[in-house]
Simulated scan of single mutants.
Amino acid sequence: MQEEMGYRNIKLMQNLATQGRITTKRGETRSFDPMQFSMLLTMAAESFDWPLDAAAKKNGALPRIYRRGWLYMARALGMTITDSMDEVEVIGNEPRAPKLELKAMQRLSSTAKKLEKAGLIKCLRRGNSQKRNNAVWLLTIGTSEENAEVEAYVRSRLRL
């Protein structure tokens, strides 16, 4: 039986939350950070589990990799829904809210830095808006040995 994409990743990140690894400092205490959790949950759901199943391996899937970009994530998290049609512009035949998109992407970028600092994600390749390339993010949600194994596998496939 083939598991759905990201199922095991989501279970791992839920365990990280239970262990208090998805937190932010508020005053003198640390508390659960719903934005970090939402972002990591989206990344986990959109990436292949490790180890890869036979079909995913055959198709060249990359485990624990998120590369859909911040705009995709902003939309997935409902961060670009407008309160007013005055905020909407047609860009490339698509209704969009550029001010909301920019604000959402800035917030996601800031949240990614927190996740990176916590050792839960790692940027393997920076994005380039001129080339329309999204960054490549590795979810480092396993043990240190497992994370090293996944990273080596992904780097060899991406020739990094």
Rank of each mutant, 00 (worst) to 15 (best):
Q2G: 07
Y7Q: 11
Y7N: 07
R8W: 09
R8S: 13
I10W: 05
L12C: 11
A17F: 09
A17N: 10
G20C: 09
G20F: 07
R26G: 06
R30F: 13
S31K: 14
P34A: 13
M35V: 12
Q36R: 12
S38V: 06
M39Q: 10
T42L: 15
T42G: 14
M43Y: 13
E46C: 14
F48D: 04
D49L: 05
W50L: 00
D53A: 14
D53F: 08
A54R: 13
A54L: 11
K57N: 09
A61M: 06
A61P: 00
L62A: 03
I65L: 07
Y66M: 03
L71G: 08
Y72A: 13
L77S: 05
M79R: 07
T80P: 02
I81N: 09
S84C: 04
M85E: 06
P95C: 07
P98E: 05
L100D: 00
K103G: 06
K103M: 10
L108S: 01
S110R: 15
K113V: 08
A118R: 09
I121Q: 01
R125P: 00
G127V: 00
G127L: 01
Q130W: 09
E146Y: 04
E146T: 12
V150L: 06
E151S: 03
L158F: 03
R159P: 00
R159Y: 09
